[in-house]
Design a protein around this nucleic acid. Structure first.
Lengths: 125, 125
DNA sequence: ATAGATGCAAAGGGTTTGCACTTGA
DNA sequence: TCAAGTGCAAACCCTTTGCATCTAT
């Protein structure tokens, strides 16, 4: 599946390559129409899903929000969401071993951390 | 709104009182039918929403999943989601100060931590 | 008695799928 | 050529809403 190079697929990849932040399907559709004006939402979804399956994209899921996607390849990291502008930023570092928090008998496999607050721009006076 | 005591409302509160973990609307519906067999999903949604507004319930939102709800009043805590049975459990403890992860200029206000793995039941042989 | 609450079914919003047409290899 | 990929619209899933009926006060 998705083994051909189409202009739609190229356009969608270009959108991610040109944008430094995680994007949702609607944003991809809008930006992608600059290159392929008749681009359809179904193609965006199918292509994103296949790019995730192929490992080129990874989903960025924040609590209570529809998924965004970003180009894969970054090291293990988490995200900071600005409460004012709603933008999401990658943060480096990690709280480390969280097995202390794991209840007895439970098997810890991975974790997710999201920080909330104000980004540099919104915190500035 | 929701200012009367109905058997549906009571049943829904009972479900949360009897269950120690965060529940989604479908789980509440199923458990609630034990008390009110004709309970409808719309009533579950309406009642949950009003219990959240009144502060009796708080939403538990995990990345990429529809919201669950738990009784308000618990101290700051996080959640563990079982990858096998998809149930969510409250965990005690907290990684603590995460300001090390916060980029310069950013203002950290709060955080969310979710652990993933196998619950005691699903990890058992 | 009567406004509030319920249940059903229909409507919404976002994502997926069926199908005929288009297109890349 | 001709199967993979696309676009459109219908189907889906979860949640909300409209409305006639029921019920707590």
């Amino acid at each position: 599946m998705m083994e051909r190079n189409t202009k739609q697929r190229d356009a969608i990849r270009h959108v991610f390559e040109k944008t430094a932040r995680p994007l949702g399907p609607a944003e991809v559709l809008e930006a992608g129409r600059a290159e392929v004006s008749k681009l359809g939402i179904a193609t965006v979804y199918r292509t994103i899903n296949s790019l995730v399956e192929s490992g080129w994209l990874v989903p960025v899921e924040l609590p209570g929000e529809p998924p965004r996607y970003e180009i894969a390849g970054a090291a293990h990291h988490h995200h900071f969401r600005c409460r004012d502008c709603a933008r999401v930023f990658e943060i480096h570092g990690c709280p480390g071993d969280l097995s202390d928090l794991t209840p007895a008998g439970f098997m810890l496999e991975s974790h997710e951390v999201v920080l909330y607050g104000k980004c540099a721009r919104c915190a500035a006076p």
